[in-house]
Design a binder for these strands. Structure first.
Length: 574
RNA sequence: GGGAUGCUAGCUCAGUAGGUAGAGCAACGCCCUUUUAAGGCGUGGGUCACAGGUUCGAAUCCUGUGCAUCUCACCA
């Protein structure tokens, strides 16, 4: 035997040392020329390099050395070098795969499996299935080998079911073969349903097929996958290992379906509005910028669907919504992901009072359907979502929680004095002397009141300065018919009696343009065609936006928005 | 953008006055035909995130970088 562990009588002139204990040797496969690597005296076959034409490689694996006729061009060696970095466990699995493929049993060549049952179905109705034949499929989550018999925990879409297998039922040879399968592999099982001595509902296997080989070891069975970075980056592992993650995303789908059902029943029309647009308006946020090659044009990803949906109202649709992704180029934290799901809906001949009723009923309906109750527990706090929700004007909220009475404040100057007195000058974005009564009221609300709004609460009547798309309150042009709904101190919806006066709307946009010139890059962009649509005439309309991800967070008790978004935005790792 | 914390085997985590890197699970070999975090015996497995520095010697101390988590700001 030589250093690489090969029989001395075989020709090894194609074995070249790579580094201490590691050798590269070149062997012939059908095409193209491939390499294997010998590690510390053990032959390791790198299956990835061995394209179709495996017989000879496999023979080599079994100790018969191939004659060398040609070596790999230098340029290809890099790949072999990279493969040396595989862990022991990865190499073992690749060898197992190579062996199967060399025997003409390539698991990746399997096309279908006739899956007649799922785990939950069998477990939920055991009496009905007992002693009946079933065919299940899924991933091996654990394998308890007890000699001539064994138990596999098989995980499918709905959960897990145990498979019992023994040498008697399957044949000693096949049983021995199955023992080489790994946790993580995907298998098909045919057998009959029974209950073990310990009472575990199981499938007694009489046929098993390896449907897919897993080349990566799964995270540990007991502790599972905890590292949040891997959970978010490699969500598939998270879904496999953490069952509540699968539940959360199933619930997410149900919630979205519920919302659609609710609105569709009320004769709302679902529409798709553009994501790419030359103007990103309808909200105060910085957009993502992109570019059209065909049009040689700078485009923005939408930050809201509002202005397009109102055009639909102008067009006569009466009730519309768009549920989809918005994109805001802003900070990322447990409540914000750069792309997030939002529904905006608009109803002609309605106002913000109608939107309040719609929201509280919609949320209660969804909670009842998905969670089975209008009371949910979020992060240890019980939330009662049943209507009616508390209604409180912003001014009353500030009075109640901050002990400041803005109803007595006559003008901006007076408000500025109050702001100073209550330490609000640090909260304000602009210089105090530029702040209006509305700015200061809003700051006072955020500082004193917001954190107390744990149970669902509507905060009504926002200052006009921060609500450029909203109708003014009758009798008070500084205030608007706008509400935001808060749950657990977080905003989950924002709604208006929509401003439909094109002249006032143009004024508001002009004001926003001034703010933009003063450096506020979140001020609303002017959309002239939208104003033109209002000139055609939009009926009185109530509109609302609901943060879908945030609603889902409450209904699934998710701490972070990343826990309800399958693939949250992450920086690349390297 | 600021601050705090973390990054060690496939996974979950220990580790140290600065002196050859540890456990459990997983892997590999053997035993076991109703187990279920199965059990028993044995064996392998690491660029201690990355790059510098201090030192006879660095996973450990210092500096920088990357990524993540939390937090503040921004943001509704």
């Amino acid at each position: 035997m030589d250093a690489a562990g090969l029989p001395a009588d075989k020709a090894h002139d194609s074995i070249r040392p790579l580094s201490a204990g590691n050798y590269r040797l070149f062997i012939e496969s059908r095409q193209p020329w491939s390499t294997c690597i010998a590690f510390n005296g053990k032959i390791r076959i790198q299956y990835r390099l061995l394209k179709p034409g495996f017989q000879r490689a496999a023979a080599f694996y079994q100790g018969v050395c191939m004659n060398q006729e040609q070596t790999v061009p230098e340029g290809q060696n890099q790949e072999a070098d990279e493969l040396r970095n595989l862990s022991e466990q990865q190499r073992v699995r690749r060898e197992k795969l190579a062996k199967l493929q060399s025997e003409g049993r390539d698991p990746f060549a399997v096309l279908t499996w006739n899956q007649t049952h799922h785990s939950k179905q069998i477990k939920d109705a055991f009496a009905e299935h007992e002693n009946k034949d079933v065919s299940v499929a899924g991933r091996i989550m654990s394998f308890r080998d007890i000699g001539k018999a064994g138990f596999i925990d098989l995980q499918d879409r709905d959960g897990r079911i145990q498979v019992y297998l023994n040498a008697e039922g399957l044949g000693a040879e096949i049983y021995a073969d199955i023992k080489t399968w790994d946790v993580g592999d995907i298998v098909g099982v045919e057998g009959y349903v029974f209950k073990t001595k310990r009472g575990e509902i199981s499938v007694h296997a009489n046929r098993m097929v390896l449907l897919t080989k897993s080349l990566e070891p799964l995270p540990e069975k007991f502790h599972g996958l905890r590292d949040p970075e891997i959970r978010y980056r490699r969500r598939y592992l998270d879904l496999i290992m953490n069952t509540q993650v699968m539940d959360t995303f199933k619930k997410r789908t149900q919630i979205i379906k519920c919302i659609r059902d609710y609105l569709d029943e009320r004769e709302y029309i679902e529409v798709d509005t553009p994501i790419l647009s030359t103007i990103a308006s309808g909200a105060a946020a910085r957009p993502f910028v992109t570019k059209s090659n065909a049009l040689n044009l700078q485009l923005y990803l939408r930050i809201a669907t509002e202005l397009y949906l109102k055009r639909c109202i102008v067009g006569g649709m009466e009730r519309v919504y768009d549920m989809g992704k918005n994109f805001r180029n802003e900070g990322i934290d447990i409540r914000h992901n750069p792309e997030f799901t939002m529904i905006e809906l608009y109803q002609a001949y309605a106002d913000y009072n109608d939107m309040m009723e719609l929201l509280e009923n919609l949320v209660a309906y969804t909670a009842l359907k998905v969670c089975g109750s209008t009371t949910v527990t979020y992060q240890g706090t019980e939330l009662n979502l049943a209507p009616p929700w508390r209604r409180l004007t912003m001014m009353d909220a500030v009075k109640e929680y901050g002990n400041i009475d803005f109803s007595a404040v006559k003008d901006d100057a007076e408000a500025q004095v109050l702001a100073k007195k209550h330490g609000l000058d640090h909260e304000l974005k602009k210089k105090l002397k530029d702040c209006t009564k509305g700015d200061i009221l809003n700051a006072a609300f955020e500082k004193f009141a917001e954190e107390h709004l744990i149970q669902p609460t509507f905060i009504l009547d926002y200052p006009a300065d921060i609500s450029p798309l909203t109708k003014q309150k009758p009798g008070d042009p500084t205030m608007t018919e706008r509400f935001e709904a808060f749950i657990f101190a977080r905003e989950i919806a924002n709604a208006y009696s929509e401003l439909n006066d094109p002249i006032v709307q143009l004024d508001r946009f002009t004001q926003q343009a001034r703010e933009r010139e003063l450096g506020d890059d979140e001020a609303y962009m002017l959309d002239e065609d939208f104003v033109a649509s209002l000139e055609v005439g939009m009926p009185p309309t109530g509109g609302m936006g609901i943060g879908i991800d945030r609603l889902i967070m409450f209904l699934t008790d998710a701490y972070s928005i990343r826990d309800v978004i399958l693939f949250p935005t992450m920086k690349p790792q390297s």
